[in-house]
């Protein structure tokens, strides 16, 4: 990792760690949000010309990994993506928080100045000033206060995932060349958050195994436990490696293949990781008070968000089957392209 990116990652990590240590807030951490604005994080992916930080997905991945590791409740991933997509569409971004809607039922009206329809499962919808939504061919910005109805809902980790209904609401829109961009980037962001949360669950489990004593010694000294934690570690390593490779690809260009593969691999890791984390922690891990659920409830939620296994396996499978015996040539060409530049 470059020195500059390491500094960014370390700074974000400290900020999020402090937020968790000083106060565990469910819902939305307004104070932390203000601090991320001071660091330029919500606009990390917007070009400097548009008031952003001009960062890339390697940077964003490092920050979102830290976000997922500490499980802090702010719509940072969504705001980062909204800023990137708004800049791509030539839209001016409101100050925020801006969330992202990838599940949209509805359409633009009156030459793109009005929107009728529903935005479903909008992360931190109730706290967002604006929501960026993608409809076929267009990127649309809507104000939360223009919604006629807002239904509160949550994912398993109590993160807000709200439904908003708009009835002939004012809209600002720009062209979206690639309608799948938003869902790909959301998947990539969730991969980075999943990697962070997996890592946190691993660390908690290893520490717990080193301190919890049964039969006169730390349970981490039993080979049966060591072997489970080793497998857990390998799964975390796979998710982290896949995510970093997909972020690298997104920094360089079209990463649709890599993102689909990374989300599938991250999702796969979640099953073994969460079951092992809870097995090692036993009953204490099942309490409301204990911290482990901050990782595992997010992991179970994020496995669906940004596309579940069936969705991405279908995309990737169809793509590979269509190319048949070109599989290996395609697989290698994606990394070789770097050495051509």
């Amino acid at each position: 990792m470059s020195e500059q990116r390491q500094i960014l990652a370390d700074t974000a990590d400290r900020l999020f760690a402090d937020a968790v240590t000083s106060r565990r807030i469910e819902g939305f951490d307004a104070k932390l949000w203000q601090q991320t604005i001071e660091m330029g994080l919500p606009l990390l992916l917007a070009p400097e010309a548009d008031g952003g930080a001009g960062g890339d997905w390697d940077d964003a991945g490092a920050v979102l990994h830290a976000l997922g590791h500490h499980g802090v409740p702010i719509p940072l991933a969504e705001n980062m993506i909204a800023a990137q997509l708004a800049a791509d569409a030539g839209l001016e971004l409101p100050s925020g928080p801006v969330s992202l809607a990838t599940r949209v039922e509805g359409a633009l009206q009156q030459a793109g100045t009005r929107f009728d329809g529903k935005l479903l499962g909008v992360p931190w919808g109730r706290h967002a000033d604006a929501i960026l939504a993608v409809v076929p061919g267009h990127t649309v910005l809507l104000r939360r206060t223009d919604a006629t109805s807002l239904r509160h809902a949550h994912n398993l980790a109590d993160e807000p995932r709200d439904d908003l209904i708009f009835d002939n609401a004012p809209a600002v829109c720009g062209p979206a060349s690639d309608g799948t961009q938003a869902s790909h980037l959301l998947a990539l962001a969730r991969c980075a958050q999943i990697s962070g949360a997996l890592e946190a669950a691993l660390h908690k489990s290893v520490e717990y195994a080193q301190t919890r004593k049964q039969f006169g010694r730390a349970i981490g000294q039993f080979q049966a436990v060591q072997q489970q934690l080793a497998q857990f570690g390998a799964e975390v390593a796979a998710a982290m490696c896949a995510t970093r490779a997909a972020c690298r690809a997104a920094t360089r260009g079209d990463a649709s293949f890599q993102i689909a593969a990374a989300k599938l691999r991250c999702n796969l890791a979640i099953g073994f990781a969460t079951s092992t984390a809870h097995q090692v922690h036993a009953a204490i891990g099942f309490t409301r008070e204990f911290d482990l659920r901050q990782s595992t409830q997010r992991l179970w939620s994020w496995r669906t968000e940004g596309g579940n296994d069936r969705a991405w396996a279908d995309v990737l499978g169809a793509r590979v089957c269509a190319r048949g015996d070109q599989f290996w040539a395609d697989l290698t060409a994606r990394d070789d392209a770097v050495s051509l530049t």
């Binding site: 796979a238 490696c241 896949a242 490779a245 293949f257 890599q258 689909a260 593969a261 990374a262 599938l264 691999r265 796969l268 296994d309 069936r310 991405w312 396996a313 279908d314 995309v315 990737l316 499978g317 169809a318 590979v320 089957c321 269509a322 048949g324 015996d325 599989f327 697989l331």
Partner: peptide, 25 residues
């Protein structure tokens, strides 16, 4: 991949997608 051809059933296609993700990783 050779035997199932370019458009296999949904279940085969998805299994191939999952295997692809593992190979890539």
């Amino acid at each position: 991949l050779r035997v199932v051809g370019p458009s296999p059933s949904e279940s085969v296609r998805q299994a191939i997608g999952r295997v692809t993700a593992e190979i890539w990783t």
